[in-house]
Design a protein around this nucleic acid. Structure first.
Length: 274
DNA sequence: AGCTCATGGCGAG
DNA sequence: TCGCCCTGAGCTG
């Protein structure tokens, strides 16, 4: 379930479970075995997340050469953490990190490679500002958005423009800001962009805190509106994501959907007028 | 058992 | 824009 909030949570989870202790790295069924071998004797010293990219930092000695494991979960990747000695691995575990009393199993990632600090910097350079990072510069994204003929829906998913936003946050932030997804970036005004960015910062921080994407304002919750809760396997309360043809929570108009670049997006034609 | 779909992203054409 | 890579859940039959 990986949008940026998931990745930032994983950075913390890896650090808390495994950092600064002797550990064993292995790739029980995966093609990462040789690189896991190269981590023998190293400790996890730090973790970092930018957008949907997770970086696990290793050193053999406190001042030794640093190496990073670069992880991108893609659509299906998952990490399972456990207490105690690790059991026999189940399924295709790409990377297992374990100490005597904790372990983490990575399955199904798009990317899992061992890289140098320079390669990490290069990977980060390809990413736009991440609303979850304190060092993010939203003006960098605005410069790209305000020059582009591309739709704001596509720009929000372009990790080189801004990073960490996925299909759920994209649909939800545009709904919350009343912005039609088809509008070209260069037709947005700066206050509209500021509102999108500020809302993403708030929504994604809340996502990190809760571990799920919840975007419905307090006055629109099931309790406040005396309506049935929305049940969906992504686990949060949302306005339009995956609610095609269902009535908009605010105005009753059927939620519209379209597919672009193999991704569905959702919007309310009334609350987000063209 | 087999199909479809999913919160991603890359490279070919 | 399409096909492809990775995994798993939830259908259908």
């Amino acid at each position: 379930m990986p949008e940026g909030h998931t990745i930032h949570r994983l950075a913390t989870a890896y650090r808390e479970a495994l950092a600064d202790r002797p550990l064993r790295a292995s790739s029980p069924q995966g093609p990462f075995a040789a690189q896991a071998e190269a981590l023998a004797g190293a400790r996890l010293t730090e973790t970092d997340a930018t957008g949907k990219h997770l970086f696990l930092g290793f050193r053999r000695t406190p001042r030794g050469e640093q190496r990073w494991v670069h992880i991108h979960l893609g659509l299906y990747g998952k990490v399972a953490f456990g207490q105690g000695p690790a059991p026999a691995p189940v399924g295709a575990v790409r990377l297992r990190l374990e100490t005597p009393d904790a372990y983490a199993d990575l399955r199904g990632p798009n990317t899992c490679t061992l890289i140098t600090p320079a390669e990490k910097a290069a990977a980060e350079d390809r990413l736009g500002p991440d609303p979850l990072r304190a060092d993010a510069d939203p003006d960098r994204a605005w410069r790209a958005v305000s020059r582009s003929r591309t739709t704001v829906a596509a720009l929000l998913m372009d990790q080189g423009v801004l990073s960490g936003v996925g299909n759920v946050y994209r649909a939800e932030v545009l709904f919350r800001q009343g912005i039609n997804p088809h509008r070209p970036g260069r037709e947005l005004n700066h206050p509209e962009w500021q509102a999108i960015w500020t809302d993403l910062v708030a929504l994604m921080r809340e996502g990190v805190r809760l571990g799920r994407i919840d975007t419905v304002r307090p006055e629109h919750t099931p309790e406040a509106m005396n309506r049935p809760p929305r049940v969906d396997d992504h686990g949060g309360e949302v306005y339009v994501y995956r609610r095609a043809n269902q009535p908009c929570l605010l105005c009753g108009t059927p939620v519209a959907t379209e597919t672009h670049a193999a991704r569905n997006f959702f919007w309310c034609p009334t609350c987000q007028p063209a």
